[in-house]
Design a protein around this nucleic acid. Structure first.
Lengths: 106, 106
DNA sequence: TATATATGCAACTATTCGGTTTCACAAATT
DNA sequence: AATTTGTGAAACCGAATAGTTGCATATATA
């Protein structure tokens, strides 16, 4: 059972759940209303998201409110960093090329 | 056959391949040297990465050099944007709290 | 207390996934 | 021309995945 954030966000339904509860915490039933699959299926997705800490359950009476653990999402951003550096460098290089052309025009 | 970037980066081997060829384009054989699985397995991963445009093949004689398509990776960054807004907002709110405390100390 | 509601868990199923082995083909080398 | 080298594709396999149905449990409500 691999269970890391990358595998978690691979599923489109789970990404959708993340988007929905980003705005406000919600119960599994309320979440399931947004999809045309069973509540149990959503429950399973929530378990996976909870296991890798992308989501946090909070019991309130017999209801459980799930909310986004925004800190965990930063890990994806962190993974992007080296690649971001590459595209920023390329952008700067393009910038240099453009300013060189500008100078030549002068 | 689902085939989007999120499913592509879900696999750790594929993420490793991306990191390796980020520095310089490489042939499948050269890439496979970094892993203890068969070249064919790497070839399969490269097919998936190519299909969703995260990687670009360039034939050179009988060799094929694979390089990173950095532009495509930006799509993940783009997906992160709404979440980034959330954590930036929270950071600002924390910042406000801190400056309020500071003022009170004065 | 009896019933309805909210939820998670287990068992099952079809499909997908990552890997291997085997093969085919084209380019380089002898 | 024969052989070696670099590569992709197909067939197969075991494990994982996403979904379902059915059940158990706990909290609210009548």
């Amino acid at each position: 059972m691999r269970r890391d954030i990358f595998q978690a966000i691979a599923d489109p339904t789970r990404r959708a759940i993340m988007t929905i509860i980003a705005l406000q915490a919600m119960t599994p039933n309320a979440i399931a209303d947004h999809f045309n699959c069973t509540r149990q299926s959503i429950s399973k997705h929530l378990r996976i998201l909870t296991e890798c800490k992308l989501v946090k359950p909070e019991q309130q009476g017999r209801e459980i409110y799930y909310s986004l653990e925004i800190e965990k999402i930063k890990e994806i951003d962190k993974w992007l960093n080296p690649f971001r550096k590459i595209w920023e460098t390329r952008f700067n290089q393009l910038d240099n090329v453009l300013s060189t052309i500008k100078k030549q025009k002068k």
